[in-house]
Amino acid sequence: MDLNINNETARLRAVVLGTAESTGGIPEVSKAYDPKSIEHIKAGTYPKEEDMINEIASVATVLEKYDVKVYRPKVIENYNQIFARDIAFVIEDKFITANILPDREQEIQAISHVMDQIPSNNIIELPENAHIEGGDVMPFGDYILVGTYTGHDYKDYITARTNVHAVNALREIFPRKQVVPFNLKKSNTEARENALHLDCCFQQVGKDKAIIYKEGFLDEKEYKWLVNLFGSKNIFEITQDEMYHMYSNVFSIAEDVVISERNFSRLNKWLRKNNITVEEVPYAEIAKQEGLLRCSTLPLIRD
């Protein structure tokens, strides 16, 4: 397999799509990894497996419509494998495995059939102290944009998934690219105050557009850097409520095609106004786990 990923919006040719088969039911609060899941566990509104299977199937249908090669993880019984983006990511022709939460280590083994098609020298495992998840990593041409948390209390946040060691490791692997870190707001208890990954508060769409949530960034200068990069007229600013519902976590099949949640009416209208075809799917149940469309996809090849 000839991997090729240099941005978020070039025409998609191959992707890993997560699975909701045998997720293990409703977890205990102590086993949940994010405040939004905890919120729904306590409220009795945690998503049902059947609903999540149907939601992911709707995405698979759209991908097949656009002739995208779709790989699926092998199903591990009673194990949540929805969020394929967490476990690895591709930049250029390199497949980088994430050092994720220890309870989730089996997930990478479930896509071994995909990794077997990749030359071994293109598979990179980061140093043990470099914590990273794919939701925090966005290739953008000459840049690699990385969500992180640099506070001294990093270890106290289960929602802090990418550290400064990982940022430095990416700089060593890709010396010709500019790795730009963004310090994100974290909370273990309040979903509306938590940017779990960079793609929970920012994402490129189209050729030169971006979705952004200002309050997800701890440093306003870093938010302004992004606004300057894209230009204020090309920015779609989302509210806290829209961030909570994961508006920035849509997924691009091409510069002019985006898969979006069907309830994102304000965003979907803006995308269409900017000549982007919007493929609407139901994904509100999966969103209850603080992840959406980008989180459940791992792109392998784009044009």
Score class of each variant (00 low, 15 high):
residue 149 Y to N: 05
residue 94 K to N: 12
residue 96 I to D: 01
residue 81 Q to Y: 06
residue 286 I to H: 02
residue 26 I to L: 09
residue 230 F to D: 00
residue 81 Q to L: 13
residue 35 P to D: 06
residue 2 D to Y: 07
residue 78 N to K: 15
residue 202 F to M: 01
residue 302 R to H: 00
residue 22 S to F: 05
residue 183 N to L: 03
residue 274 N to C: 11
residue 152 H to S: 15
residue 108 I to T: 10
residue 213 Y to G: 07
residue 23 T to H: 02
residue 35 P to S: 00
residue 33 Y to P: 00
residue 51 D to S: 13
residue 24 G to I: 06
residue 173 I to L: 07
residue 101 L to Q: 13
residue 294 R to P: 04
residue 134 G to K: 00
residue 78 N to M: 05
residue 165 H to Q: 14
residue 106 Q to F: 14
residue 21 E to G: 02
residue 234 N to R: 08
residue 5 I to Q: 01
residue 3 L to Y: 04
residue 69 K to W: 06
residue 74 K to W: 08
residue 280 E to F: 03
residue 69 K to A: 11
residue 69 K to I: 13
residue 241 D to Q: 13
residue 69 K to C: 08
residue 70 V to P: 07
residue 133 E to V: 11
residue 106 Q to E: 13
residue 151 G to S: 08
residue 240 Q to P: 08
residue 241 D to V: 04
residue 158 I to G: 05
residue 103 D to R: 14
residue 220 E to H: 07
residue 279 E to Q: 12
residue 184 L to T: 10
residue 232 S to L: 05
residue 86 D to H: 03
residue 202 F to H: 07
residue 289 Q to L: 15
residue 64 E to H: 14
residue 33 Y to E: 12
residue 92 E to S: 12
residue 182 F to G: 03
residue 93 D to W: 09
residue 185 K to H: 12
residue 155 K to D: 06
residue 281 V to K: 04
residue 235 I to V: 08
residue 257 V to C: 14
residue 116 D to C: 09
residue 172 E to I: 12
residue 173 I to M: 04
residue 152 H to F: 10
residue 118 I to R: 02
residue 229 L to Q: 08
residue 71 Y to H: 12
residue 110 A to L: 02
residue 202 F to Q: 05
residue 82 I to K: 00
residue 234 N to I: 05
residue 131 H to S: 11
residue 53 I to Y: 01
residue 147 G to A: 00
residue 46 Y to H: 13
residue 125 E to G: 09
residue 295 C to G: 10
residue 46 Y to S: 01
residue 103 D to W: 08
residue 52 M to S: 09
residue 70 V to H: 10
residue 16 V to F: 10
residue 207 K to G: 03
residue 15 V to N: 02
residue 287 A to G: 08
residue 272 R to H: 09
residue 149 Y to L: 00
residue 301 I to E: 07
residue 181 P to Q: 06
residue 179 V to Y: 06
residue 243 M to A: 15
residue 285 E to Q: 13
residue 62 V to F: 04
residue 38 I to T: 13
residue 294 R to G: 04
residue 150 T to A: 14
residue 268 N to E: 00
residue 237 E to T: 11
residue 200 C to M: 14
residue 150 T to I: 10
residue 278 V to M: 00
residue 16 V to L: 03
residue 273 K to D: 14
residue 93 D to H: 13
residue 81 Q to H: 05
residue 80 N to H: 12
